[in-house]
Amino acid sequence: MITVGQSKHRRWALTAGHGVGLAIFIIFAIFPLFWLVKISLTPNNLLYSEGITLWPSSITWDNYKFALLGSRFPRFFFNSVIVSLTSAGVVTLIAAAGGYAFSRFRFRGKVPIMFVMLLTQMVPLVMLIAPIFKLMVPLGLTNNLLGLIIVYTAFNVPFATFLMQSFFDGIPKELEEAAMIDGCTRLTALRRIVFPLTLPGMGATLGFVFTAAWSELLFALMLINSDDKMTFPVGLLTFVTKFSVDFGQMMAAGVLALIPACMFFAFIQRYLIQGLTAGAIKG
């Protein structure tokens, strides 16, 4: 922070240092993405012949054409959209209901329930693969998108509930009380007052679960074995064959897979911006 009395030089040095630090971080974060795009645009014959260059001498859209038209990628993509959107939606609904209860009500067993929910977050997922598989087989939920949705929902609900609870905690109780005096029942107060104010929280939860489900590989790999049920992280692996790896096509598919995640965040980011509750209470 710049305070009164610091010399001009020092201030300039601080600003410059700040900028350099930020730049280094941004390059570090963006470079893999850049590399992804670069490889996806590099013609196959130049991939190994040109050595390591920042940009290929010529570019091609063939990899994208193949990913979209020649491969099963659109199917994987579609499966991923279904699984991620449904999981995100269901988790957000359950988490909102649970978070509201944790935030507003006192009930028997509240602390044990919260403890068990925390406990589920402490178990490494790898340990659960075998039992889950064993559970899913007799239910016919392996090689089934519904099975994936159930697993993702189950794993994301605890954390999402705590996330939602913290958002509800941030909404003053007096707002509901005022609404109830104004003429609302608890349910109308929830719908008219609390719900609109929780949209940022819902957006955050939705985004969080969506990205988690979108990029999940472990369970998708385990539970899905047919091509037409694969989600895109598993599908990407089909570009790896016994004899070669189609880096260009794989990267093109990867770039395409980034698009919905980006769109999703572009859409919800306005809900993520805090400050919607500013002005509710003193200040």
Binding site: P172, E174, E177, I181, I193, L276, T277, A280
Partner: peptide, 20 residues
Amino acid sequence: VAPKDRDIAMVFQSYALYPH
């Protein structure tokens, strides 16, 4: 009787205005 049916109005310390 529920608060809404008591025909009362309340002014809160924190004002509790609906921010949206």
